[in-house]
Nucleic acid binder design. Structure first.
Lengths: 346, 346
DNA sequence: TTTGTGAGTGAACACGTTTTCATTTTGTGA
DNA sequence: TCACAAAATGAAAACGTGTTCACTCACAAA
């Protein structure tokens, strides 16, 4: 009870401001709502008193009556992954500027979600939820869709997901991976690569499936052999071991196409520091994502870039559109990928 | 209005559950509050109906009456920094298990904070706010302290902050940096290093100031020369350039002690790939933090570790203690640092 | 003067929950 | 069976805000 009293003492209410400024409580509400009609001088006086009393409208109360929480949920499995953290950082900045706060939820590495957490998350009534097809299982996602909370599924270049969501439509950001992969394959072929290994990402990952499929397709189009597919999980350590296996147990390769940059780092380090091979002379390596670390001199990685700014701009556009017009037709934004040539191919 | 109607349709309320289960709304509330007294069979029936109706208690309404939002604010300047993201990830996991959600707020790189954002953040009424002395200016922090929201200031080994907060007490996690730095200096000295450069972090950073101070102190105690201090900002690029300057414009050094691991990476790459020097033969390098990337083979960095698990455990203990007993005496947890020896010294 | 228009105003209600409090029911020992 | 404590129950009162609605007032046009 004590803390309750403290909170009341510390936190000013609209009534107190109204009393102090000799106006009605409604006027205070209007003073904080820019498009409400209120005499300018009155608004100024109220805002001044509010500042003196250190008053801030209570979001919970506001949310209760308006139905908008000004919270945007973000579902992520691993904040430490450079790719995810880039996304979180940029989106949080953009949304914050628009008056929304980021609510972070962690799911397990296998994309499963504690049902208790799901319940909990719904309780916060987020205005929007950003999920990546990468990070959440289709049936979990559907649980949300049923409640008509807008969901943004991204990095999804396959149609299978629409089926899983039982025909429900949702906004999406489509990343065309074909461009970048074509450029990468062309470069590898140009430098004489013949045996190409695909160092995969997480098995549940749709982006991984799509990248593998597109790589195979592209190689076939160019009359090259199908890739050797190595299992992976997007981590450095797994990529490291997979590369060792490829060369010690398997027959090696003259190029490695990694599903993500971090995996490419693992491959490069295994090649250079354990197998005594040279990159790019003996083996060429291409990554995917172009995370900031890719330009570090130790790696200087040639990689397929998904432009961060472009990506975030599109996402924010989608999200704000949906927040403003919840019933508008679902939108699809499309962005392209392109190869960033550095030093790991030739 | 349409979306409002939708929301009402989609989101079940306690009243609806009560009607459906033939009980009072109070009973529904009690069913979701584990320690409330309610006939077990009745609770079961209510929970069953709740599940059928897809009902979840509304956090906003609950927050309004209980005074606890179950939100924990986190103030961060850069989610992409491996150090920060580790922290966010681990804390979010731990807090989530205890029923709290993480609310993310970004401040500018210079630690200043948009006053509008500050107001906004207060509006969400977070049960607790986690700030790092690293990431927020003292006066901003005081703005919170005045409102008696518990604040956890960590990585603060200096007393100056207490003064800035005008005597207000707060919980803190004290990181004793002395141990690790002593071990590092001993190792460097053992390998014959004489001219040591300190590659600094952000100027506003208290941890940086403290590390620099402790390094100087330790060198003096061992009768070694004072370090050459290079300005920095915790980033790879700045560290890279500073190292080039040290050797091209300045007189070089035979060891570099970096304020953080990422800075150490920049130094190593500059030495190896631009200056043609060998690490550790020509120049020894020590980092600080032991982020996951430190064990990557390209760097294999000898570094001072602040144990993540220990750190997070202590933080969570502090936070939960404060949430349960807001008026309890401020606590200080202390953890130690230690050197992780890898390949960049000898 | 009358009429109409538009902005400005505040009382009352609504939002969905928890908590208090008085009441009823259940369980236990004599 | 009775008495008494303990557990279970629901009506009503909060919590702090936005919104509706009917109303006043000033001002310009008729």
């Amino acid at each position: 009870m004590n803390d309750r009293a403290d909170k009341k003492a510390a936190r000013a209410t609209a009534d107190q401001v109204a009393r102090e400024a000799n106006v009605s409580r409604v006027a205070v509400s209007r003073a904080f709502n820019p498009n409400a009609s209120l005499k300018p001088e009155k608004r100024d006086r109220i805002l001044k008193v509010a500042r003196e009393l250190n008053y801030t409208p209570d979001m919970a109360a506001r949310s209760l009556v308006t139905g908008r929480s000004h919270l945007v949920g973000m579902i992520v499995p691993d904040v430490c992954s450079p790719w995810e953290s880039q996304e979180i950082d940029a989106l949080t900045t953009a949304l914050q500027a628009e008056g929304f706060a980021t609510l972070l939820f962690k799911v397990k590495a296998d994309f499963s979600m504690d049902p208790r957490l799901l319940t909990y998350m719904r309780g916060f009534n987020p205005d929007s939820v950003i999920a990546f097809t990468e990070n959440i299982l289709p049936d979990v996602l559907c649980g949300f869709l049923d409640r008509a909370v807008p969901i943004y599924v991204i990095y999804d270049d396959v149609e299978q997901f629409a089926g899983a969501a039982s025909g429900t439509l949702y906004d999406r950001l489509l990343v065309r991976q074909k461009n970048g992969i074509e450029q990468a394959v062309a470069l590898l072929q140009g430098y004489g690569a013949r045996r190409i290994a695909y160092l995969g990402g997480k098995a549940q990952s749709l982006a991984n499936a799509e990248r593998e499929r597109t790589l195979k397709e592209t190689l076939a189009e160019r009359g090259m052999d199908a890739p050797i597919v190595l299992p992976g999980d997007y981590t450095y350590d797994t990529a490291y071991r997979a590369t060792l296996d490829l060369f010690r147990i398997g027959d090696g390769a003259d190029a490695i196409f990694a599903a993500n940059d971090v995996g490419a780092f693992g491959a490069i380090d295994a090649l250079r520091h354990e197998l005594g091979l040279s990159v790019p002379d003996d083996v060429k390596v291409v990554g995917f994502d172009d995370i900031p670390q890719a330009h570090w001199k130790s790696y200087n990685l040639t990689t397929v870039r998904i432009d961060l700014e472009e990506r975030v701009r599109a996402l924010v556009r989608l999200i704000l559109m949906r927040l403003r017009a919840p019933d508008a037709q679902p939108l699809t934004e499309t962005i392209n990928t392109r190869l960033i040539v550095r030093g790991t191919v030739g």
